[in-house]
Design a protein around this nucleic acid. Structure first.
Lengths: 203, 203
DNA sequence: ACCTGAACACCGTTCAAGT
DNA sequence: ACCTGAACACCGTTCAAGT
């Protein structure tokens, strides 16, 4: 065993993913070319096809890693919040938006691309579903504690996801006239707070 | 005067915009090529450069028309709702989402593309600002009637916009496990309703 | 097994040249 | 003024051929 380097990169597949992420953080997503990734990694432009069926498959792998990072970011946010379910829900939303604006190109690959597979669906999109689960579980915890309105949790999670996703996209695309990081963080908190008031059990 | 056809299309600029819209509704946005639009319209691949600086400029014109259509759709939705400010706010949100899912490719051009200019900003993006204004005015009307929480209207409008934009994008990208139009419409109503409860003046 | 180099059918953009 | 045709520098993808 211990089969060292099967070729000069040890793991070309991972090198291509890392190279793609590095390139999209430098430039933007649309101008990313498979040939440029290959060049960067030091391999011929045809080599990636040993590991990915096409450009879209490579981007799907990049998206997968992004969702793993998003999940971790939300969990860190939750860990730093107080125990109150509504506080944890807010922390989840704020962490979501902050992850997106910290990694705009990566976030665009996760969503902006292809039609995409359903995420709020356990069957497909493993990493995406994991991320969505974090949000869903905070809703369910809020319901169990009696501070989030009752009823099916799933549609409530879709409301929450729509709001944070929409804010993230508007901020990333520079659609809102905000620039200072502090303004952006304040808005993320305000939006998430207003959302949570809509989800909260009235009275 | 009455200078008939300055060239064979009378108005190549508009023909290119219409051609681009026709193509994106048939196929998807990313695979749209300027050369194909030119072919479709019956002119050489270099001719578009007489009217648009580059591909991005043509897409910006397409987006502009989209925002005009979105504004009209929201206004129709408001006209059909009752006079109650919260009902009008909900109607605006539902009309927004329905426009997006009825014209997914067009909506993607309006947002998905380029970094984009600020929309919630009167100086730039005329048509986009007009659309945003419809939403903002419903918020202000709700405040005037005392049924929407007081404070600056703009951040409240950003909350609302984030929610409907996020839902629209998730639906267009098929991120939610819904397919039947009725399910989608029900969700649009539910999401908008929950949003409005967050914006409403508590008690 | 894994990678390369040439090839194919496309792009966006520019520019001299035509009417 | 408005449009064309050739040209340039790129793409994504395929495939025979090399080791």
């Amino acid at each position: 065993m211990a089969e060292k380097t099967t070729y000069h990169h040890g793991d070309l597949r991972q090198a291509l993913i890392d190279g793609a992420i590095a390139l999209i953080t430098e430039q933007d997503v649309n101008s990313l070319s498979l040939r440029e990734v290959a060049r960067r990694v030091g391999v011929s432009h045809a080599a990636p096809y040993r590991h990915f069926a096409d450009k879209e498959s490579l981007l799907a792998a990049v998206a997968e890693e992004g969702f793993i990072g998003l999940t971790a970011a939300m969990q860190r946010g939750i860990a730093q919040a107080t125990d109150h379910p509504l506080a944890q829900l807010e922390a989840t939303g704020v962490a979501y938006v902050q992850f997106a604006i910290a990694h705009p190109a990566h976030y665009r690959v996760m969503f902006g691309g292809l039609p995409g597979e359903p995420i709020a669906d356990p069957e497909r999109g493993q990493a995406g579903w994991q991320a969505f689960q974090v949000l869903l579980q905070r809703i369910e915890a809020g319901q169990a504690a009696g501070v989030v309105r009752s009823g099916e949790a799933m549609p409530l999670a879709w409301v929450a996801w729509s709001t944070v996703h929409g804010l993230a996209m508007l901020l990333i695309d520079k659609r809102l006239p905000l620039s200072h990081p502090q303004e952006i963080e304040d808005l993320a908190k305000f939006v998430t707070h207003t959302l949570v008031e809509g989800l909260a059990r009235s009275a």
